[in-house]
Design a protein around this nucleic acid. Structure first.
Length: 137
DNA sequence: GCCAACGTTGGC
DNA sequence: GCCAACGTTGGC
C-alpha cells in the first residue's frame, strides 16, 4: 500500500465535481516526474486531494481504482498516462497549507519542497499525520 | 552542450 | 499583481 497526494485547481476540477462524478481519470499530467509517480500507483493506494491556488488545502481522501493506462487526452505517439481515482471521503477538517507548514512532522513533504509538482508520494507517517489533522476517524 | 528567453504553476 | 521556481524552446 502506497500513499500519494494530487493537486487540482478547484476552478479547473474540484473535489465537489469529483464526488458528483463518483471518480475520474486523472488525465493531463504533462510532467515526467509526476508521470512516473502515476505509473507507480496501484489499485487501493490512498490519495489525498489538494486544492491549489484559490483554496490551498487538502479536502479529501481518494483511492486508486485502476492503475496507470494511456492518457486518452494525450497526442498519439506520446506516452502520458492516467489512473482512475474514486472518492473515499471528505476530510471533516480540511488541512490547509499553512497548517502543514506549522507541523514539524510534515517538514519534508514534497508539497512544501517542490511546490510545482502535481502528483507526489507521501510517506505512511506523513499520510497518518494528515489524516489526524483532518480529523478522519 | 550551453544559456537566454519565455511560459506555467502556485504561493503570497 | 507580483514573483520565485522550474520546465521547455531555440539560437548559437
Amino acid at each position: 500500500m502506497n500513499y500519494w497526494l494530487v493537486k487540482s485547481e478547484p476552478a479547473a476540477y474540484s473535489w465537489t465535481e469529483f464526488v458528483r462524478e463518483g471518480g475520474t481519470d486523472w488525465t493531463r499530467v504533462r510532467n515526467f516526474q509526476a508521470r512516473n509517480f502515476l505509473r507507480q500507483m496501484q489499485p487501493a493506494d490512498l490519495v489525498l486531494f489538494y486544492h491549489s491556488v484559490s483554496d490551498k488545502q487538502i479536502v479529501g481522501v481518494a483511492e486508486v481504482a485502476t492503475a496507470a493506462a494511456p492518457d486518452a487526452t494525450a497526442p498519439a505517439g506520446t506516452d502520458w498516462v492516467a489512473v482512475r481515482l474514486q472518492p473515499r471521503q471528505p476530510l471533516p477538517a480540511p488541512v490547509s497549507l499553512a497548517r502543514i507548514k506549522q507541523d514539524e512532522r510534515l517538514s519534508q513533504i514534497a508539497l512544501l519542497r517542490q511546490s510545482r509538482l502535481s502528483v507526489m508520494p507521501l510517506k505512511a507517517e506523513e499520510f497518518d499525520v494528515l489524516l489526524e489533522l483532518g480529523e478522519v476517524k
